[in-house]
Amino acid sequence: MNDIPWGDLALNLLAVIAATIVFIGAIMATAIKIKNQSIIDIFWGPGFVVAAVVSYLVSARGDGNDTRRLVVLVLTAVWGLRLGAYIGKRNIGHGEDRRYTSMMRQRKDQALIPFLIRRIYGMQGGLIILISLPVQFAMYQSEAIGIIGSIGIAIWLIGFLFEAVGDWQLARFKADPANAGKVMDRGLWAWTRHPNYFGDACVWVGLFLLALGAPWGLVAIVSPIVMTKLLTSFSGKAVLERGMRRSKGEAYEAYVASTSGFFPLPPRRNKTVTPS
């Protein structure tokens, strides 16, 4: 435990905190100007890219393995930029998401900026800083990627494919007018109700394994735990499925009965998904 680069890690964390505050602050200022708080969703993924770039630059004079550092930077950037581009293409031009509109109605006479920081931007920024810990830690590990790191890359790739392919399949499904009112139950969506969320969780498990070049990297396990909890219990799966049950009714209940809720499993037989 004596080889932990406490000073370097602390400096890196401070740099990531500062960069995240500036990044999130710029998004908040823009959202206030255009009166659309939901643009924060577009910049969720790119926020991690900011943390990765800052960590890569700050760690340049450290003892971190250059291959590990570059791999972690590239993997984080590919994931974050793809996610931001996908959500941007999906959301731009459709106005403010009703979740944020409902949240803004609760402000009443509260001061705007403190309200936004407390309800939206402070939490988003804090999560970026916390969840990006594997990215930060990996930049200061001198060991070669090795077997554990290679497994991490493989899990990242599986996750990225699940997320990207799942999003692509869903976008194509929604773009077809013939599917109006139907439940998406094809492709990866026949194996899990949330291939994109499952993929997201795998991405961060993979990045965590890349932070295990040294035993102290175990501290970063908080990252995939928090991300998976968010995806399954808070802003992800739980919220989405409540809305789907309201909008799709029996069709979605049939889908739930026949399809795994998170981890991909073969579709169960006698699936009878019909238009709502």
Rank of each mutant, 00 (worst) to 15 (best):
D3F: 14
L13S: 04
L14S: 11
I17G: 01
T20G: 12
T20N: 06
T20F: 09
I21V: 10
I21Y: 15
V22P: 12
F23P: 05
I27N: 10
I27Q: 13
M28P: 13
A31E: 12
K35F: 00
Q37D: 15
I42F: 03
F43L: 07
G45S: 01
P46A: 03
P46F: 05
P46E: 08
G47K: 07
V50S: 04
A51I: 03
A52L: 07
S55M: 10
Y56G: 04
Y56Q: 06
S59H: 08
A60P: 13
G62C: 05
N65W: 00
N65Q: 01
D66F: 15
R69K: 10
V72Q: 12
L73I: 03
L75A: 09
G80C: 01
L83D: 09
K89E: 11
R90I: 14
R90L: 08
I92N: 03
I92L: 14
G95Q: 02
G95N: 06
E96H: 00
D97T: 09
D97F: 00
R98N: 13
R99N: 02
M103R: 15
R105W: 13
Q106K: 08
Q106M: 11
K108M: 10
D109F: 10
A111W: 03
I113D: 03
F115K: 05
R118N: 07
I120L: 11
Y121G: 03
I129F: 01
L130Y: 13
P134M: 01
Q136Y: 00
A138F: 03
M139G: 00
Q141C: 05
I151Y: 02
G152V: 02
W156Y: 13
G159L: 04
G159R: 04
L161K: 07
L161R: 10
V165A: 12
V165E: 13
D167Q: 08
D167Y: 05
P177A: 04
P177I: 04
A178P: 00
N179R: 07
N179W: 06
K182M: 14
D185S: 12
G187C: 02
L188P: 09
W189P: 11
T192N: 03
N196E: 01
F198A: 01
G199F: 14
D200S: 11
C202L: 04
V205S: 00
L207R: 04
L209C: 01
A211T: 14
P215T: 10
W216N: 06
V219C: 02
A220R: 07
V222M: 06
P224M: 02
P224A: 05
T228C: 14
T232A: 06
S233Q: 13
M244Q: 12
K248G: 08
A251D: 10
E253K: 12
V256S: 08
S258R: 00
T259Y: 02
S260E: 09
F262T: 11
F263M: 12
L265A: 14
R269K: 15
V273L: 01
P275D: 04
S276Y: 01
